[in-house]
Structures are given as C-alpha cells and as structure tokens.
Computed example of a mutant assay.
Amino acid sequence: MRLGVNIDHIATVREARKTYEPDPVKGALIAQDAGADQITFHLREDRRHIQDEDVLRLRCTIKRIPLNMEMAPTEEMKKIAIDVKPERVTLVPEKREEVTTEGGLDVVSMKDYLEKYIKELRKNNISVALFIDPEEDQIDASLQVGVDAVELHTGEYANASTDIKRKKELERLKKAAKYAKEKGLDVFAGHGLTYTNVQPVASIMEIEELNIGHSIIANSIFWGLEEAVRKMKKLILEARREL
C-alpha cells in the first residue's frame, strides 16, 4: 500500500505569520526521503495554505515520487494543473467557509460538467481521481465520467463518536472499495486518518493508497517529520502484512 503525505499544514503554520518558514517544499523532500510514495497538496481557491509559488517549486523539486494535486473542479485550477502537470489531479469539493474538506464530491449531480472537465485533463496526460463519499451511486457516476480512480472519503469513519458507528462506517468503506475495484477503478482513501485509526482502513485489501496529512504534520512537532512519516508507513505496512 502506498502512502501519500499531504503537506498542506506545513504551509498552514507558515501562513499563520505570513513568513517564509516552515517551507512545505522542504517538508516534501523530507517526506520523500523518509519513504513517502507520493506528495499530496491542495491548492485552494482562497490560497489559505499552499500558494502558487509552492506548486511551481514542488514541480521543479520533487522528481522521485509523484505529485498529487487536490483541487476544486474550476477553470482556474484546470489551467494551473495543465501548466504544472502533476502526475495526478484529485478533484475535491470546496467551500470557502469550511475548515477542511467536509465530504465527497457530488459526482452524480455534476456528471456532464465533470466529463468534459476530466477529458481535458487527461488529454494533457494527467491522471484524474475523484474524492467521493463511499456510495455506489457516486462510484457509478465516477466511472461514467471517465476517471482512473476514486479516493474514498474516510471522514465519517475517522470522526465516529462510538465504536458501533465506527464499525458501521468501516463496513461502508469495505463495501465501497470492493464495489469500485470490481468496476475496474483504482481505489484510494483519506481524510482524518491518524496513527490510532489508520490500520483498519489499511487492512481493506482493495485500497491501494492512503493520503494522510494533518496527523503526520501534527505529530512531526514532537517526533520530527522524518520519524512521523516512517511511523505512519510502518503502521500501514504492518496492517497489510496481516492480510
């Protein structure tokens, strides 16, 4: 299983003071050297953390592993993606007032728009994934618009207030992952995953990749970023070995 390390919150700390440190590109290099399989970043419309200059510097600096650019499906973001050419774009919903992404993209209601939008990205040799809730109708719609992969939103699982609810959400993820894989899609997952809750999701055989940011960056304050990445990768690999 691959680990994508999301570096957004390195930039969040920097933007708190509008200064030059900590540098998310330096963080991406450390994560790469520590065993990350991919660098993930979200260029938001409001530029609250990652900035355009960061994106250009990431493209020039990260060479050994892929870049995964999370973005809203807007014309502005499409132009940036085509110029920068990350290995993958993951389309996500975005609201200006939200603290972080609150749910999956509603592909069902945006099918016609997304089909044209995705076609242009793929024409430019950019792989496309959709960040969706673990629901069969969203998976079916994702297949219809011509994407390569879906990333299942794990927020409901991560934020479950009881063991019963957490178990129910885990079963929902398992069912969705299996369904998507049977339909021929690559299956990824992410959102709200931590050192204490990641292994049950990592144990879902059909999921090939996890994208994790906040927990890794938060714990890097205590452990250092290199160790934080290594510990997360170790937990994921342990879960896979038990399958």
Rank of each mutant, 00 (worst) to 15 (best):
N125M: 13
S127C: 13
S127F: 10
V128M: 09
V128D: 06
V128E: 00
V128S: 01
A129K: 00
A129W: 00
A129P: 07
L130P: 00
L130D: 00
L130A: 07
F131L: 05
I132V: 03
P134M: 01
P134D: 01
E136H: 12
E136S: 10
E136M: 07
D137S: 12
D137G: 08
Q138H: 08
I139Y: 04
D140W: 02
D140M: 10
A141Y: 11
A141W: 08
A141Q: 08
A141T: 07
A141D: 06
S142H: 05
L143T: 03
Q144S: 12
Q144H: 13
V145F: 01
V145K: 04
G146R: 09
G146N: 06
V147R: 02
D148N: 10
D148G: 07
D148Q: 11
D148R: 03
V150G: 01
E151T: 12
E151H: 02
H153V: 07
H153N: 08
H153F: 13
T154V: 06
G155R: 12
G155P: 00
E156P: 05
E156G: 06
E156K: 15
E156V: 09
Y157M: 09
Y157R: 08
Y157S: 04
A158D: 04
A158Q: 06
A158W: 12
A158N: 04
A158V: 12
N159M: 13
A160G: 10
S161G: 10
S161I: 14
S161Q: 14
T162N: 08
D163M: 12
D163Y: 13
I164K: 15
I164T: 15
I164Y: 14
K165P: 12
K165T: 14
K165I: 14
R166V: 11
K167Y: 15
K167N: 15
K168R: 15
K168P: 07
E169G: 09
E169V: 11
L170A: 10
L170T: 09
E171T: 10
R172Q: 08
L173Y: 00
L173W: 04
K174Q: 13
K174R: 14
K174H: 10
K175L: 07
K175D: 02
K175P: 09
K175E: 08
A176M: 08
A176N: 03
K178E: 08
Y179S: 02
Y179T: 01
A180E: 05
K181L: 04
K181W: 11
E182D: 11
E182W: 05
K183V: 01
K183L: 01
G184R: 01
G184V: 02
G184M: 02
G184W: 00
G184H: 00
